[in-house]
Computed example of a mutant assay.
Amino acid sequence: MSALKVLWLDARRVHALADATLIRTALLSASTALYLLDDAPDADHRERLQRAGLASLTDHKDFDTHLAGIADLVRTLGPEAVAQHQSVLTQLQTWIVKARQVAQDHGASSTKIKSLTPLAASTCVRRAADYIAEDAQDPDDAARLRSAIMTTWRTGSAAAHGRMWPLLIARRRDDRAFVHTDLEELASGVMATALILSQAWRLWDLRRIARA
């Protein structure tokens, strides 16, 4: 969000893809925080700890996949590089065991724990969309909120992977497609992210005060 402020207000630049990826990152991070701090009736302390374990396990598995992918390259760099690589792997395995144990102790199924992505990004974003929409007085407003959040995430993911479809719906007067981003659409994504982040901070304050 700070990077967007620098781009838009300081540099006065709007990019076709980069801005959407920044918003997507902020939205997903905020959604994950909200998911972990969830105060819904079905999200008690035990459930939140299970989610935390699964979130950590997902992160560690991603790192493990990365380290496995560069193992052959590391071996070409000599014994010192191999030793450093192995040291990181050893530490990572300790983190994986701890995260797996936390998730298991708080009710996570063996299937969920063994999956490639124990906590999917889609789970966090959909829950955040539902959470924000719950406060809407009008069903149409609730639908718009859900749509804005899901669209921000999906189009931002497409931008992050260099996909062109979010841009190709823009048309010239002669109906030819052209690469162009819509500032109003980006602003909608910022507002959606701000709503989620605001709720996440509110829940964090409640947890922090309760623990104090």
Rank of each mutant, 00 (worst) to 15 (best):
Met1Lys: 02
Met1Tyr: 07
Ser2Glu: 03
Ala3Asn: 13
Ala3Pro: 13
Trp8Ser: 11
Asp10Met: 02
Asp10Leu: 03
Ala11Gln: 03
Arg12Asp: 05
Arg13Asn: 09
Ala16Met: 03
Ala18Ser: 09
Thr21Lys: 10
Leu22Asp: 09
Ile23Val: 09
Ile23Ser: 03
Ile23Gly: 07
Ala26Pro: 02
Leu27Arg: 04
Leu28Gln: 04
Ser29Pro: 05
Ser29Ala: 04
Ala30Leu: 11
Ala33Gly: 11
Tyr35Val: 11
Asp38Asn: 02
Asp38His: 09
Asp44Thr: 10
His45Phe: 15
His45Thr: 12
Glu47Trp: 11
Glu47Lys: 14
Glu47Pro: 06
Arg48Val: 01
Gln50Thr: 14
Ala52Pro: 13
Ala55Trp: 15
Leu57Met: 15
Asp59His: 00
Lys61Asp: 04
Phe63His: 12
His66Ile: 06
Leu67Arg: 02
Ala68His: 01
Ala68Asp: 10
Gly69Tyr: 08
Ala71Thr: 10
Val74Asp: 02
Leu77Pro: 02
Leu77His: 01
Leu77Trp: 05
Gly78Trp: 01
Pro79Ile: 00
Pro79Asp: 01
Val82Gln: 10
Ala83Asn: 09
His85Trp: 13
Gln86Ser: 14
Gln86Tyr: 07
Gln86Trp: 06
Val88Asp: 11
Leu89Gly: 07
Leu89Phe: 12
Thr90Ser: 12
Gln91Met: 11
Leu92Asp: 03
Leu92Lys: 10
Thr94Gln: 05
Trp95Arg: 13
Trp95Glu: 07
Ile96Glu: 04
Ala99Pro: 05
Gln101Thr: 14
Ala103Met: 13
Ala103Lys: 02
Gln104Ala: 14
Gln104Phe: 14
His106Ala: 08
Gly107Gln: 15
Ala108Arg: 00
Thr111His: 08
Ile113Gly: 12
Leu116Met: 11
Leu119Phe: 08
Ala121Cys: 09
Cys124Tyr: 10
Val125Ser: 14
Arg126Thr: 05
Arg127Leu: 04
Arg127Trp: 01
Tyr131His: 13
Ile132Pro: 11
Ile132Ser: 12
Ala133Asn: 10
Ala133Val: 08
Glu134Arg: 14
Asp135Trp: 12
Gln137Thr: 13
Asp138Phe: 03
Pro139Val: 02
Pro139Thr: 01
Ala142Val: 00
Ala143Phe: 04
Arg144Cys: 14
Arg144Tyr: 15
Leu145Ile: 15
Leu145Thr: 05
Leu145Trp: 15
Leu145Glu: 12
Ala148Thr: 04
Ile149Arg: 02
Ile149Asn: 12
Thr151Gln: 07
Thr152Cys: 13
Thr152Ile: 12
Thr152Glu: 15
Thr155Asp: 07
Thr155Gly: 14
Gly156Met: 08
Gly156Trp: 05
Ala158Arg: 08
Ala159Val: 00
Ala160Asn: 00
His161Lys: 15
Arg163Phe: 00
Arg163Ser: 00
Met164Asp: 06
Trp165Ser: 08
Trp165Asp: 07
Leu167Val: 09
Ile169Thr: 13
Arg173Ala: 00
Phe178Glu: 12
Phe178Cys: 11
Asp182Ser: 12
Leu183Asp: 03
Leu186Ala: 01
Ala187Asp: 01
Ala187Trp: 04
Ser188Trp: 05
Ser188Lys: 00
Val190Ala: 07
Val190Gln: 07
Val190Asn: 11
Thr193Arg: 00
Thr193Asn: 01
Ile196Val: 00
Ser198Thr: 07
Ser198His: 07
Gln199Trp: 04
Ala200Glu: 13
Trp201His: 10
Trp201Phe: 09
Trp204Thr: 09
Arg208His: 12
Arg208Asn: 12
Arg208Phe: 08
Ala210Pro: 15
